[in-house]
Amino acid sequence: MGATRSRYFITYDVSLYFGESEDLDAYDDLEEKAVLVFQKCTSKDEYIYALDWQHECYWINPNLYIQQNEFDEWTVPIFPNGDYYFFLHKDFQWEYLGHLWERTITIFGKELIKGFEKHHPRMFQKILRLG
């Protein structure tokens, strides 16, 4: 992709994965790749913010077990299936935003962009915006 050098954010259109998606493994792929990238962007003992804008928010360590709910999803899901979800570096060096109404995922920060370029989720096929 080569966007790392000059990009500060990338917004991916993930609208194909709302409703009855034929590629159900894409959700697991997104979780697996996100964990890998978050691990690469943090130290072993570092926590990041996991925010669900109208619910409980958490500190999570991507190098440890990420708590799941009764639907086997992360407590703050990585895919914006019902709300806005944010994963932020504690010093705000990077951010992952799942946007429900736009049906997008935006990656902010060079380090996170580089990580997702290396560990590219199947969902990240259609770029909507670059900045």
Rank of each mutant, 00 (worst) to 15 (best):
Q67C: 03
E95W: 10
E70S: 14
W59G: 07
K40F: 05
L97F: 15
H89L: 01
Q93T: 13
P77D: 08
D91H: 13
F87H: 04
D52R: 09
H55D: 13
Y27N: 14
Y49N: 13
A50F: 05
N81I: 11
I48H: 13
E32I: 05
K44P: 11
W94S: 09
P80R: 11
K44I: 09
W74D: 01
Y96V: 02
A50P: 06
N63G: 04
Y96S: 00
A34P: 06
E73H: 13
D45I: 05
A50N: 03
H99A: 13
L30V: 09
Q54T: 15
E32N: 14
E73T: 08
I78Q: 04
Y49K: 15
Y49T: 12
T75C: 05
K33L: 00
F87K: 03
E56M: 07
L97G: 02
Y47G: 09
K40W: 01
E31I: 01
I78H: 06
E46G: 09
P80L: 08
N81E: 10
D83V: 02
Q54E: 14
N63D: 04
I48M: 03
D52F: 05
E95L: 10
Y85H: 11
T75F: 01
Y96C: 00
V76T: 14
S43A: 10
Y47C: 12
T42P: 04
Y49G: 02
D52P: 00
V37I: 03
F38A: 00
Y49P: 07
E70D: 11
L30Q: 00
L100F: 15
H55G: 15
L51Q: 11
P62H: 09
E70A: 11
W53S: 13
E46C: 05
Q54V: 14
L88I: 12
E95R: 15
Q39R: 15
Q67H: 05
Q67L: 01
D29T: 13
C41F: 04
I60F: 05
I48K: 06
F92S: 12
F71I: 02
A34H: 03
V35S: 02
G98H: 06
E95Y: 07
Y27Q: 12
Q54A: 06
K40R: 11
W94H: 10
P62W: 03
L36H: 04
Y85K: 01
H55V: 06
K90R: 15
F87D: 00
L36Y: 03
W53P: 07
I66C: 03
V37G: 01
H89M: 07
P77V: 04
F38G: 04
D91L: 05
E73M: 08
L64M: 15
L64P: 08
Q54L: 06
V35P: 02
Q93I: 12
Q39T: 08
L100T: 05
E73R: 15
G82T: 07
Y49I: 07
G98E: 00
A50E: 00
I48D: 03
E95P: 02
Q54I: 14
K33Y: 01
P77E: 02
F86I: 02
D28N: 09
Y85A: 00
H55A: 15
W74N: 08
E95F: 07
W74P: 07
A34C: 04
W53Y: 15
Q39N: 02
C57W: 08
W59Q: 07
K90I: 13
P80I: 09
N61C: 12
Y84S: 12
L100G: 01
I48L: 08
C41D: 05
K44Q: 14
E32S: 10
K90Y: 14
G82L: 03
